[in-house]
Write a protein that binds this DNA or RNA. Structure first.
Lengths: 114, 114
DNA sequence: CTGTATCCGATGGGATACTG
DNA sequence: CAGTATCCCATCGGATACAG
């Protein structure tokens, strides 16, 4: 019974202003350094990037590889386990694309951005 | 290009403390009155129920049917368009259930609720 | 380079009272 | 019955400075 009410769990893990774009970048590029991610997401601050990555890492969706060199080098990637999320992300993306069109139908072009 | 980065859209529509449980109730029961929904979700306030329903209605996921009687009667249901979300909700639910088990594997029983 | 700490304003959601 | 209005607090996220 309670086992059938857990899509909030998925939602909670994906919630966070920058998690979607971080996931998208990592899915597209495979592996990225901290600074690469930061450069590829112009408006994100180090604090938020670090925080959101840490949460994704806790949930084993993102893998963090540290190279103990000077200067430090840290690489992020989608973990093997995290790959299992990609069909859902893809489905959500497809629905989102269609939905923006649907909103335009309903309310017209000018309000579709709401 | 930009058309491929819209799963945030889906996320935004589903975000809201009570939307998942509202959707679940409506999916299970088909059609429910405002007061039925409120009774079936013990801790929700009228303000939040009304607000979250209004947002779901704006996105054409929930249908609102008003019966102009005294006392007023309003029934809510998942719209036809909204049905197209259910495979995603189901997929998210399944992933969520599996993920809670995964967290238990990773961190043990006592931390799986985090 | 890869972060953490602090402060602070914006937003989300709860309690309560009021209304058509 | 089915909401809305108001106030208030907790959490989230941005700016900036500091650190290993």
């Amino acid at each position: 019974m309670t086992a059938y009410c857990k899509f909030e769990t998925t939602l909670e893990i994906l919630i966070g202003k920058w998690k979607p774009v971080i996931l998208l970048r990592l899915l597209a590029s495979g592996t990225m350094r901290f600074s690469e991610l930061q450069r590829s997401i112009p408006d994100i601050t180090k604090k938020m990037l670090s925080q959101q990555l840490k949460e994704l890492e806790y949930h084993d969706i993102v893998h963090r590889e540290v190279y103990p060199s000077i200067p430090p080098k840290v690489e992020y990637s989608i973990s093997e386990y995290g790959q299992r999320l990609t069909p859902i992300l893809q489905a959500m993306n497809d629905w989102g694309v269609g939905h923006l069109a649907h909103l335009t139908e309903l309310y017209g072009e000018e309000r579709s951005a709401e």
